[in-house]
Write a protein that binds this DNA or RNA. Structure first.
Lengths: 335, 335
DNA sequence: TTGTAGGCGTTATCAG
DNA sequence: CTGATAACGCCTACAA
């Protein structure tokens, strides 16, 4: 059943059928009804491929993320999908993993599928070594690139993010103001936003101007499972590194920190304050619940899609939008 | 840049270019190289829409889920996407919410996009009132329908699931065997798999043959946030309903149960045993960590895609595949 | 081994 | 307001 069949049955030309379907040009009420009736009657649906070929778009945008099962990313995908759908766009999902080579591969795959835009979810898409971001700029020559929670300069690259620097700065500063002295910064990823957070921590610590504190020891990069991370902290503790608070770059790290505290009978938040990041579902699962930095994911995603639709309409849109984070105070911290 | 441009530059016909691209028919090494060089040189990529139109497929399968941010569903999506990609298929994601009307809408949307198959993630897609499942059977006339964790009879509908009945039966039975008497069953969704779980619980309880226990009171349906669920349990407790164990249909409910225990100073698992379901990431976030029923999501997803690929190849494939769950024992239970 | 030509199902541009 | 007809870019018999 195609447009010819419909046109024959309705006794009109295919042009008229097309007009009725798309409702752009004027068609007399009478013929319109006739066509509509036939369409209804034989359950005709326009062929999306043919339409795609003619219009050179299937109204689809590609979403790239490292791992859709990560709670933070999963939420982002949800918000993005909803918003795209609202605007009549489909979402093509790609889980790339964390390797740049893979990301490049998926990028050209999506490009070859001719999606109308590509959304990069997560700051891990912005490499610190900028030459590795070239493939993104290259892609931006074909379609608009939207980055969720990461910033990259370049034409046709639109970034929406939260001010991670400030958030970590404020969180660390608050701890200092409340008497915590030796604050550990625990992180598991090096990326654009990762570096911002790190800088926020360092800047806050430097306001104290302590000569005795070797900050390198307090910058703890560790990538592993919940248990491995807990063990890592325990080994630091046993080795005698003194710390009374831990600021983390992710809620899951904070969960590990909490497990570490339990294992070593440190009372939280009295002897050890812990601050998570992302304010994801898991922040509510522990006891006490995690104090966590909320990076306004829904607002960020919403803004990104709104910007994209503006770009589609040919409007001038800001290349960068920055939201403020909010510290959600719960049981693992004392301010 | 299209196939004509390439053919001109290479000094061959478009048919030859097409043959080189698709590598099906024989082309002399010399011309092949020539064409490949031109393609490389001008960065030509075949137009996916045109190809789709000709072949009547874009090698895309639709994924429908209620909410991609749910940890269980998010994991399923991840496994599915990876497996599809492995087989050179793209994943089109739809988050439908929990209303049947919406699901129907999305189903016809995907159908109109002419995806090669549609995957329904989550038992919530199978309604207890079977007439509401008619739209799925209808869709199955056009494309294979794969159901993850739900069962629905029908031609061209392939289901892969875990034996929820047995899992809950065994879990409940184990608690009974270990001296727990008043076991509450807490659930938040009515669906195919929801009913299976419920039956498993009831069957296990009936083996005890207790005249004094009004089982209706122990069947607790409650749908709400973590906190609301906790409060619901507290109100049951205050009202005097005696219970020493809680079996739940979802890890998040078990988290609420744990919070309830903390709030009321009940020691877990001594005074109260708690069993979760799905063995998701959040089962590891609490203290003690949740004993949870693992429903082998990765295996289920893998099987579903393998089955789908068989269907695509025209092979006869089983309409239903059932895996066994596994009870992962952790700190919230004593067996 | 290679080329020619028709078909896939739309949309859009002109005439009328 | 409506109808012919030419794109859109590829695949694939069929011919050579």
């Amino acid at each position: 059943m195609n447009i010819y069949d419909v046109s024959k049955r309705a006794g009109v030309s295919i042009a008229t059928v097309s007009r009725v379907i798309n409702g752009n040009s004027y068609v007399s009420e009478k013929t319109k009804k006739k066509v509509l009736d036939v369409i209804e009657e034989c359950g005709y649906t326009p062929n999306a491929f043919a339409r795609g070929l003619g219009l050179n778009t299937m109204k689809t945008v590609g979403i790239m993320c490292a791992d859709s099962s990560d709670p933070y990313i999963a939420s982002a995908i949800y918000y993005i999908e909803q918003e795209l759908r609202q605007n009549n766009y489909d979402a093509l999902l790609c889980c790339t993993g964390y390797e740049v080579e893979e990301k490049e591969k998926y990028m050209s795959l999506l490009l070859s599928k001719r999606t109308d835009a590509i959304i990069l979810v997560g700051s891990n898409f912005v490499e610190v070594d900028d030459s590795k971001n070239q493939y993104i700029r290259e892609a931006a020559k074909s379609v608009p690139i939207m980055i969720i929670n990461g910033a990259l300069n370049g034409e046709n690259i639109y970034c929406t993010l939260c001010d991670d620097y400030h958030a970590v700065y404020e969180a660390t500063k608050s701890l200092l103001n409340n008497g915590y002295k030796n604050i550990l910064y625990l992180y598991n990823a090096v990326s654009y936003s990762g570096n911002k957070k790190l800088s926020g921590y360092i800047a806050a610590m430097e306001t104290e101007n302590r000569a005795d504190l070797k900050i390198e020891e307090y910058l703890q990069f560790f990538h592993g499972s919940l248990m491995e991370t807990k063990d890592h902290l325990t080994s630091l503790y046993k080795r005698g590194l003194p710390f009374d608070a831990i600021v983390t770059s992710d809620d899951s790290l904070a969960i590990s920190a909490l497990k570490f505290a339990k294992e070593n009978n440190l009372s939280v938040p009295k002897e050890l304050s812990i601050i998570g990041y992302n304010n994801s579902i898991i922040a509510l699962c522990s006891e006490p619940e995690l104090t966590s930095i909320d990076n306004k994911l829904e607002a960020v995603c919403y803004n990104s899609i709104t910007t994209l639709m503006g770009v589609f309409r040919g409007q001038a849109m800001p290349l960068r939008t920055v939201f403020s984070c909010e510290i959600i105070k719960r049981g693992t911290s004392r301010f």
